[in-house]
């Protein structure tokens, strides 16, 4: 299978300049790779650095050292040293990030939020709307909410809008951080199915799942972050 992510010797430490310059090491010498069609689940206690690692893979946090080859448009690119517009292009076409939190933008409707990634990848307005509506329906978001801005939605409703946006056109690489945190059992199962479908279509998945049942339903492989913990 095609390697989609190759992590080499990645280390991360935070330096808090305004709190006495204290240095917080997170992990050191992280090495792993993920292939298309795999779902790698990150394990390790709370605070071990799972979310930090996921953010580093997305190019959001900058590692202290190491490199991360992301396969984009058929070739490996180091997302750590790539210039901003290359990172943005990688995110637009290759790399998706799914969190439990929706970044609400004033006045933008739920439907438009979900349509947006399809439009950005060149789908027609008609196709984008049809697929977005199907995805919102699948996640059981009441139709009366589709044309409203999600600022006033409940936490679970916002979360489902965010998941719909992420899975309406799954990226070749999906980074997933606790997507089911406040969902009921029915919607949680829908999310598990969506992840499985994306993987079967060839997406490489890296995720963090608190819920053990979800974790076991999703994972094809585990990686324990605690192993990379710096000897303090």
């Amino acid at each position: 299978m095609t390697t989609m992510i190759q992590v080499e010797n990645v280390a991360k430490a935070f330096t808090l300049h305004n709190q006495g310059g204290v240095r917080l090491p997170v992990f050191d010498n992280v090495n792993f790779s993920v292939a298309a069609g795999e779902a790698l689940v990150l394990a390790g206690a709370s605070g071990a650095g799972k979310s930090s690692l996921l953010r580093i893979l997305y190019g959001n946090y900058r590692p202290t050292s190491g490199r991360i080859a992301v396969t984009h448009a058929g070739r490996p690119i180091d997302i750590v040293t790539a210039v901003p517009r290359t990172v943005l292009d990688i995110r637009r076409r290759t790399l998706g990030f799914v969190s439990q939190f929706l970044r609400v933008i004033p006045r933008v409707s739920a439907l438009d939020i979900v349509r947006d990634p399809l439009l950005a990848r060149g789908a027609s307005a008609e196709e984008a709307s049809a697929r977005a509506k199907a995805m919102l329906a699948r996640l059981n978001l009441p139709q009366r909410l589709w044309d409203l801005a999600p600022a006033t939605f409940s936490g679970g409703e916002q979360q489902r809008v965010n998941i719909a946006r992420s899975f309406v056109d799954p990226s070749p690489i999906m980074l997933i951080d606790e997507p089911t945190a406040s969902l009921d059992a029915g919607n949680r199962n829908v999310v598990v199915q969506l992840i499985a479908e994306a993987r079967e279509q060839g997406s490489a998945i890296v995720g963090i799942f608190h819920d053990e049942a979800v974790r076991e339903a999703v994972a094809t492989r585990y990686l324990d972050i605690t192993d990379f913990r710096k000897a303090a």
Binding site: R67, A69, H72, A73, R75, P76, I77, D78, T81, A82, V83, R85, T86, D89
Partner: peptide, 10 residues
């Protein structure tokens, strides 16, 4: 792995 963005049609 340094890529010239031009290769990505940017």
């Amino acid at each position: 792995m340094q890529v010239n963005p031009q290769e990505l049609a940017l």
